[in-house]
Each structure stands twice: as C-alpha cells, then as structure tokens.
Design a protein around this nucleic acid. Structure first.
Lengths: 248, 248
DNA sequence: TCAAAAGTGTTTGAAATACACCCATGT
DNA sequence: ACATGGGTGTATTTCAAACACTTTTGA
C-alpha cells in the first residue's frame, strides 16, 4: 500500500483533567521512523528524513500524525491515527485546516491537514497502541518546542476550540459520561480563560435543557457530594448542527 | 517549475449584487487543460484527465483552482488563483479546509485545499485575466452541477460564511467602499436567509461604531437619496481579530 | 468541629423586540 | 401626484450581571 508523500495528517488531541486543558503528544524515536517501511499498513508517524537519513531533531516531540495512504480518505485516516494514538473509538473529531508553508518541513515539501479531537478523561490514562509507547499529556501552556510547525498547529486548534465552544455545545466531549455542574463550569473557565459566576452559570445551563440530572451523586469526596448530570443526546444533536449561541 | 500532483487548491469566490449572493465559476475548456504544460508558470486549472486524455465532463464548470507549485505556499497560491481569476488584489481570503475523499476526482487521488473569498461588487464586472475567459457569476441558489465535489465545497463555504458573519464583521468585504445601511441590512438578510427589522438593525449597527457617515449621499435613485457610510478600518481591525458576537 | 465545595434567589440595568408613520427623490 | 425606498422613537419584555449565605460531607 502506498502513501502520498506530499500529504500528511496531524491530530491535536485535547483532554481536560484537574482544571487543566491538555494535549496529547508523542515522542518520536529512531525506530519508529522506519515503521512504515517495515509495516506499511500500520500507523505511520513522520518518516521524512534529511538526505543523510537523519531526523533533524534531538528530542523530536510532536503531534500524532502520519502520511495519508492513497486509498484512505483524509477524514478516515485522521480517525485511524486517533484510534491508534488513544485506543478508543467514537471520538469527537473535526478538521482544523491545512498547513502548507513551503518550508514547514525543512527537507521535504509536505502539506499537512490538521484535525482536532476532544477526548473524555475517562480515557485519560490510555497509552495508545503498542506502536506508540511514548505518548504523553502536556498542559496546554507547558507544551515544549515541537517538530516542524506543530506548535503553531496547537495554537490554532486552541483558538478554534475557544470559538467552537461558544457556538456549539462541544465542551461536553471533554467531560466524562457523568459530570458535576462545577466540572462543566471549570471546563468553560479553563477553555475561555475567564471566571464565571456559579449561580448565573447554573441558571443558564439548566435553561438550555442540555443536561439532565442522573439522580446519582458523587462519592468519596471530602465535601458535600455533588449531583451528577449527563447531557441529553437528543437536545445535543439538535443544537450541534445548527450553529447556536452558547455564550456562558 | 513543478507542481504537486496530489494537491490542488480551489477558491469559492463570493460576491453580492442586487440582493443576491453570487459565486464565481469557470467553464473549463479543452485548451485550458493543456495550459500548465505550455506555460508552467501560469495559473493552472484542473489538468487531470482520464487515462485516455479526455476530461470526463461534457460541460465542465467548476471553481477556479489549480495544482500547487512545489515552491509556493498554499496560502500564497490561493491568492495567486484569486488574483488571476479576478484581476484584483487585497481580497479577503480564508481557508475553508481540505477535501480528501479518495474518489473525489475519479481518475486521480488528489486532495484539494479550499479557500473562500469575499469580493466587493465594484469589481463585479471583472472577467479575470486573459487566461480565463469563461468566468461567470452564478446565483448561489442557481449553481449548476459542477465538476468533482465542487458543489459540496460551495455548500460548505456558504455554511461557514453564515457562521463567520455572526462572529466577525466580515460582511463588509462584500460591499463597495461606500454603502447605504439598507445595503448592509440586505446583505445580512441574504446571507442569513432571515428578515431584519430596519429600525432595530440601524440602532445596533450604529452602536457598534463600525460604520461612519461619509457625509455623501446616493445620487440618481428614484426615491429619497440614502446616506453613504463606510466602515471604520481601525474599529474593524480591533473587532476582526478577537472573535466577537455580531448578532444582527 | 473544621475545611471545602455544593447549592440556591432576587434585584438592577442593558439589550432585544415589536411596531407605524412621514420624508425626499425621479418619473 | 405617485411610486419607491429612506429614515426615525417608544414601550415592553427578556436576558445578563451582581451579589452572600446555608448545606453536606470526610477528615
């Protein structure tokens, strides 16, 4: 199976844990660089090398990504990468855009189509498939210098997430199945970088009919247990399509 | 100069004229299909052919586009296409996203990065550079069947424009230098497909300080002449960066 | 009993909506 | 003089913002 040499996919995978927005990064190593040659059907991280065969980074950390096989659509392949990196399916995934500066990869002309994904912290401890051992969550504001233009990709994805979260109720994808209203509020506070008034926030959320009380309560916390909510899939799907104002 | 065979650019160019949203389309013809071979530095419309060298459409109408030269960034090349198609510079241009279904072009695997542009109807009658004779404005709701997945591209661009227009004050790019408030209102009514109350619309617009009275008046109209406004570049630039709510 | 977070209502000001008539211009 | 769109204000309702104390739980 062949890949398209001038086209790659990268995925910005967001998570939310302990009031922090996180991004999943991969430390590439020399063995992995040969992977697509040995196992062309497998997930293929960046494989371009300098003419002398060396990878031009000391400690190459970057977004999970790979070159697009000729027989995979870019959307499908982005999902493949995501599944390989996280080991889970049914992830919220959206295209961010194409990055195509001529020198973005120093030794090869390659355009990268970037996706961003929102994942649920129930899967926080996943470590990806066996192919990818060195996956790690990084605080969004502690991302190190990455390969190529991956820092710019994350910045743009974050900017988009901030916009998206105000237009569509996508924030829920970053929360577990059942969550407290405080968690939801903290999510918005973190993503938007603002503080919200608890009472006003709750009023607004309740009025949207987007969350329903599960009847269950938090357990094992050293303070009053909070109600657990889940979001209403039907209302969500209605609201998710038609862009709507989600000003919190 | 070489092109990247698996990567093309297409531009959805929007215009606004007589209360109608328009899109600029190109009828490709057999001679143009050879153009990049004869003149590789020139604007290169679609050049893929079936194995027998024929183009698989009877009357191939589509978006202006071309294959990316290896030494041009995708953003720069989108701008090249736009300038070739319209003959004007300084156009509002934004990336929409990449289209990458495996079969989107039946005879070749090619991923297209799509841009959308908003142009000012003062340039409405431009007919592009001499290379492109058969450019034509189409009503957005009278677009014929186009080559490849270009209809889907236009649909997606329109959806994005509708969102954009509510978040950023981009609508102004579709108006001439000086415009009446009625024109501005009609623009929003057309793009969003809704009716707006004149008095409320004017109140809201004025309060944004985005338009300033030029002191000039309409002439030659068979009714009371309207004031002409232009939009305030400084305020515009402030508002354009930070996404803001532009609910009209 | 203390610490830590959950949970809850009311008041005030701002913005959104609904709505109808006179004005200026060209034909 | 008439047809066509330009231009304006007020009253009502809805939404956003500000703000403080009591409750529950585990340690």
């Amino acid at each position: 199976m062949n890949i398209i040499p001038s086209l790659s996919i990268d995925c910005v995978i967001f998570g939310f844990h302990e009031k922090k927005l996180k991004v999943l990064l991969l430390e590439y190593d020399k063995e992995q660089l040969d992977a697509p040659v040995k196992n062309p059907d497998a997930f293929a991280p960046y494989t371009e090398t300098e003419p002398d065969g060396k990878f031009p980074y000391e400690k190459p950390i970057g977004l999970p990504g790979g070159h697009v096989p000729v027989d995979r659509s870019i959307n499908d392949y982005a999902r493949d990468i995501l599944e390989t990196a996280t080991g889970i399916k049914d992830i919220y995934l959206k295209q961010l855009g194409a990055f195509g500066e001529t020198e973005r990869v120093s030794f090869l002309r390659v355009v990268s189509v970037v996706y961003y994904a929102l994942i649920n912290p129930e899967h926080y401890s996943i470590r990806g498939s066996s192919l990818l051992k060195s996956l790690e969550w990084y605080d969004i504001d502690k991302v190190p210098e990455l390969i190529f233009d991956h820092n710019a990709m994350i910045e743009k994805a974050l900017k988009r997430l901030r916009e998206e979260v105000q237009i569509r109720p996508v924030g829920f994808h970053l929360l577990p199945e059942m969550f407290t209203l405080t968690q939801l509020q903290q999510l918005y506070e973190t993503v938007l970088g603002i503080e919200l008034d608890t009472r006003n926030f709750r009023k607004k959320i309740q009025k949207m009919h987007l969350v329903v009380d599960t009847g269950k309560m938090q357990t094992g916390v050293a303070h009053r247990a909070a109600r657990l909510f889940r979001f209403d899939k039907k209302v969500y799907e209605m609201l998710a399509e038609q862009s709507f104002s989600f000003r919190v």
